[in-house]
């Protein structure tokens, strides 16, 4: 009887170990298959000609994705310019100024809105933001500016939620100490609370960046997808993600491999960002 229970315990443990290993297996498969499809073209065409190449004409043997790398960073930076200050000040308002009731209502409401699918943001961007940009500022409307606004709104919930948690985790005694020295509320926030919550706030920005740089469908809809480096915020542009999604359905041969090379570059950028984010969060926990 005892022996039977023990073997069952062992069996369960093996099964659970296998389950736990499945995540690693999936990660491994994702890397292997994206890399094995994407790397060969780097050998054939040359790393430099892909990463620093300006011309994307995959059916004619040009696989330059430099404009897309630049565009991906531009929209991410743009999203941060819109989303970070608005998101952070919203988090400050929630943690330092709003009453308890409002806090209990607003925090979940914001997190619920994080669930709105990206295609819906993209659609509303096409209907409202793109014409607004075209009519008031000129250009085609499908632009770096429109994309930055849409992505900025999309990263609000991430930035607000994580910065808010960071601000709330600043010990109450810090605030009391600062007030006791005669500081005003704003001086306390600016000189004491924000510096203490710095790494958490930073992590919220980096995670927001990760979301913006990986976003695809909303970007395709509002960015205009032009194949060059934009020279003004009113120019259309194409990101790494949209390049993959726009052409994957019909690409064959080297063209398809080129899309996987685009995926490799994206994967590397994302991994670096994630590493920085986990580092920032871990530092916060250690403190």
């Amino acid at each position: 009887m005892i022996k039977k229970a023990l073997t069952k315990e062992h069996f369960v443990k093996y099964i659970l170990t296998a389950f736990a290993l499945s995540s690693l297996l999936f990660l491994f498969l994702i890397f292997i298959f994206i890399l094995s499809e994407g790397i060969p073209l780097f050998h054939k065409v040359g790393l430099k000609n892909i990463i620093f190449g300006f011309k994307w004409a995959p059916t004619k043997g040009s696989f330059g994705i430099f404009p897309m790398i630049v565009s991906s960073f531009l929209v991410t930076f743009g999203a941060l310019m819109v989303g970070a200050p608005l998101g952070l000040s919203c988090a400050i308002y929630l943690s330092e100024y709003s009453g308890k009731k409002l806090k209990l209502f607003l925090k979940p409401a914001l997190e619920l809105l994080a669930g709105i699918p990206s295609v819906v943001y993209g659609f509303l961007g096409v209907i409202y933001i793109v014409p607004l940009v075209r009519n008031f500022l000129g250009g085609p409307g499908f632009s770096l500016l429109a994309t930055s606004i849409i992505l900025g709104v999309m990263i609000f919930p991430t930035v607000i939620s994580i910065s808010f948690d960071a601000l709330m985790s600043v010990p109450k005694t810090y605030r009391e100490g600062s007030f006791a020295m005669g500081a005003t509320k704003w001086q306390t926030i600016y000189k004491v609370i924000i510096p203490s919550a710095r790494s958490g706030i930073l992590a919220s920005f980096i995670l927001g960046m990760g979301r913006a740089i990986g976003e695809t469908m909303a970007v395709i809809m509002v960015a205009g997808n032009a194949l060059r480096i934009p020279t003004s915020i009113l120019d259309p542009l194409r990101t790494l993600t949209s390049n993959i999604a726009l052409e994957l359905a019909y690409a064959t041969g080297d063209h398809r491999l080129g899309l996987f090379s685009t995926g490799v570059v994206l994967l590397v950028i994302i991994m670096i960002l994630n590493y920085i984010a986990t580092f920032a969060i871990r530092r916060r926990v250690l403190k």
Binding site: S23, L24, F26, L27, L29, I30, F33, I34, G210, R211, I213, G214, E215, T216, T241, I244, A245, L248, L259, F260, G263, L266, L267, I270, M271, L273, N274, A277, T278
Partner: peptide, 17 residues
């Protein structure tokens, strides 16, 4: 680490894979 990495991969790369 594996779980965190999977969580950070954008959906287009899941589509590609």
């Amino acid at each position: 680490f594996g779980v965190e990495s999977l969580a950070g991969i954008p959906s287009i790369l899941y589509g590609l894979f």
